[in-house]
Write a protein that binds this DNA or RNA. Structure first.
Length: 216
DNA sequence: AACATGATCAACT
DNA sequence: GTTGATCATGTTT
């Protein structure tokens, strides 16, 4: 926690500082309507912000996975349209939330133009603001654990199946670009976690310095 | 109507 | 590193 560096008078974000969410500088929907790997890499370091009735919460994305529109057997959309995967076939910039292993939920941001069936899975993030709100849903766990792992992230932010099709370019839910984009050396690439098919594809991207990454 | 599958987590050993 | 919990979804009967 809290490499709360003050270098030259510019403050970096930390969990203890005030952080004003600003939809005006968030990624527009067109940002997501691009090749999935580009979007995945660009999301590292970006801040997911959700406004709620009782406040708002924010966390810095540090681990994502790409699920490609073509040649990716691990993609839920690989076998075509279904009621579950319907959100993935809309245009980029909305949520695809699915249930897995009984209890859990996983959150994806849909990518590429309409009809492609692609998304980026949000796997882990560092809490920046609204920690109490995250804890209310996640329980009393260390801060770096709050959004470590896709189901934990989904639970902490209170995402559920009803959030399918929800825009991530709205005033109540959006993603802000990184204040400081991570350097190329900071970004690590690996096979995706937990997939049975498409194990050979290197489509997991994470920040190697982050304590919130689910597995090195 | 029944069954197999799975992009997981927490709690063990 | 292994395992059990537990259920939405898609596929088969």
């Amino acid at each position: 926690m809290g490499e709360n560096v003050v270098t030259d008078g510019k403050r970096r974000m930390s969990s203890l500082e005030a952080f004003e969410p600003d939809p005006a500088v968030a990624f527009p929907c067109e940002f997501f309507q691009r090749p999935t790997v580009e979007v995945a890499r660009a999301l590292l370091g970006a801040v997911l912000v959700k406004q709620e009735e009782h406040g708002w919460c924010a966390a810095r994305l540090v681990e994502v996975e790409a699920y490609l529109p073509e040649g990716d057997p691990a993609n839920h959309a690989a076998r075509g349209w279904s009621q579950r995967t319907a959100p993935m076939f809309q245009q980029g910039g909305i949520l695809y939330v699915y249930a897995i292993y009984g209890r859990h939920r996983c959150v994806n941001v849909v990518t590429e133009p309409v009809g492609c069936g692609a998304a980026v899975l949000l796997r882990a993030a560092e809490p920046i603001a609204g920690i109490a709100l995250l804890r209310r849903r996640r329980g009393d766990v260390p801060e770096e654990m709050l959004c470590r792992g896709p189901a934990n992230l989904a639970l902490a932010f209170g995402f559920d199946l009803c959030d399918n099709f929800r825009s991530v370019c709205s005033d109540t839910l959006f993603i802000q670009p990184p204040a400081e984009p991570p350097s190329p050396e900071e970004i690590a690439v690996s096979p995706r976690i937990g997939v049975t098919r498409g194990r050979d594809l290197l489509l997991r991207f994470f920040l190697r310095t982050s304590a919130a990454v689910s597995r090195q």
